[in-house]
Design a protein around this nucleic acid. Structure first.
Length: 430
RNA sequence: GCCCAGGUAGUGUAGCGGCCUAUCAUGAUUGCCUGUCACGCAAUCGACUCGGAUUCGAAUUCCGACCUGGGCGCCA
């Protein structure tokens, strides 16, 4: 029976392991093979005079990163990693790897991100890279779990949609039989429809697509979005849910992924403290004005430079609240007493935006007005507007970028590091 | 889309008009080596993105293409 390398302890006597040949050190009469699986690395020690002929034949033929199956006696050995080593009875080459390798899995020489992504399957064999995705999996798990515990209903909504009804971002057009269609930029309209459907609390974790020609370390053309929508909630309530979710996710990763965190040498992993600061937009632009040459006027978007100086000043997760209505989407609810600002918010990490959300407009007439005010045509929104005519509860929600959450959590310098097979302007393969 | 920086063995790099028959590391191949842990030692192999121009001479300068990294913009 094959066992994981982690389970090979000095006391088990005999072991049967499968894995990759990580490194070879052949000293002549004695050879050391490091065998790696996803749980760890085991030293296989081969005293050449004492092992079967078949073992010698196999180790002569095997190459690095070949898949092998090794059985033998486990010996206590202080000098070996993990305090134990395996002396083989059998050494089977399950699948020989070609040489040379497209990149060095044992990390003796550096490798550029582009080369890594071209051979991502090999890149992810590196323990420190695999660790990112173990942590991502743990984070996704705890968020799903959180939503279920809080009574959210998980939904999936179409990624193929008919029209660019939301405006704003560019969409990817696709051929859909004899019709024009697009890849969806966000589940926004669909999760709102589920408020009209009476689900009250919904969440979706899924892909979103944006056809923007951006070329940065924090943008992708395909991203994973974590979205919620809650009936009878206002923006303040969904902000509390969001900060609670972030804190609980960090706590879970901290509690369950210490080995993986150590592996990626994540030195500044700290669980954020709730409540996060609520910084009104007008104060945010005042902070920016003190530090950057070109001040932001009310109604301007917050530039990347401003985002950085405000992030430095805040030093931790924070919300920017009370945005000008003019720069938020039509479905953001304006304040009753001052409709120039609205009940919209962004959740910021000091490095970048992670999430944006709002209390939504639930009144049909107001929504039609807001759509028209944005220069859009309400007639093309009929499928979206219809639910608002038959008893739409008030509601609020947000969308959170999963890739950026992992990137900022682990201090990764490029969002592509947090995604197995990133899609950007230049990369469609693998 | 705009701007900047780049493209040299499988990988990561040095060289920036003649010293290049191109550096170093890693790797691959072969040999030696019984406690390595980036094992050591020796030999061998392996590269200037493509096209054009300037020049006696181009990896090096210029032009174009392609590709890459980064910043900005865009990102309801």
């Amino acid at each position: 029976m094959r066992i994981p390398i982690q389970s090979v302890t000095p006391d088990i006597g005999h072991a049967d392991v499968c894995g990759w040949v990580h490194e070879v050190r052949d000293l002549g009469g004695l050879a050391f093979f490091l065998i790696r699986d996803r749980t760890g690395i085991l030293q296989v020690t081969i005293p050449k005079k004492k092992v079967p002929e078949a073992v010698l034949a196999a180790i002569k033929r095997v190459s690095r990163e070949s898949v092998v199956r090794v059985t033998g006696t486990v010996k206590v050995m202080e000098k070996a990693p993990g305090g134990r080593e395996l002396v083989p009875d059998t050494f089977e080459i399950v699948n020989l790897a070609e040489t040379p390798l497209p990149l060095d899995v044992s990390e003796k020489v550096g490798v550029e991100l582009d080369t890594r992504l071209d051979a991502r399957f090999l890149d992810v064999r590196r323990p420190r890279v695999a660790a990112v995705f173990h942590i991502r999996s743990a984070a996704m798990h705890v968020m799903n779990d959180y939503f279920h515990k809080k009574g959210f209903i998980g939904i999936t909504t179409p990624k193929i949609v008919a029209a660019a009804t939301e405006g704003g971002t560019e969409l990817f057009p696709i051929a859909y039989f004899d019709k024009e269609a697009f890849l969806n930029q966000s589940p926004q309209l669909y999760k709102q429809m589920m408020m009209a459907a009476g689900f009250e609390k919904v969440y979706e974790i899924g892909p979103i697509f944006r056809a923007e020609e951006h070329n940065t370390t924090k943008h992708l053309n395909e991203a994973t979005s974590i979205d919620i929508e809650v009936s009878y909630a206002d923006h303040l309530e969904v902000m509390r849910i969001l900060e609670d979710l972030i804190v609980k996710t960090y706590e879970y990763v901290n509690a369950t992924c210490s080995d993986h965190l150590a592996n990626i040498e994540c030195t500044n992993f700290t669980v954020p403290k709730a409540p996060f600061a609520r910084l009104p937009y007008t104060e945010a632009i005042e902070i920016a004005a003190k530090k950057i040459a070109e001040p932001i006027k009310f109604g301007d978007d917050i530039s990347a430079a401003a985002e950085h100086v405000i992030g430095d000043e805040m030093g931790a997760h924070y919300f920017i609240v009370d945005w000008p209505s003019s720069i938020r989407p039509y479905y953001a609810m304006p304040y009753e007493d001052d409709p120039t600002i609205c009940k919209a918010f962004d959740l910021m990490h000091p490095r970048m935006e992670l999430s944006s959300g709002a209390q939504r407009v639930h009144q049909h007439n107001l929504l039609v007005q807001q759509i028209a005010k944005k220069g859009l045509n309400p007639e093309s929104f009929e499928f979206y507007l219809k639910p608002f005519r038959y008893g739409m509860p008030p509601h609020a929600g947000w969308g959170l970028g999963a890739d950026r959450l992992i990137m900022t959590m682990l201090g990764l310098s490029n969002v592509r590091e947090a995604v197995l097979f990133p899609r950007d302007m230049h990369r469609l393969v693998p």
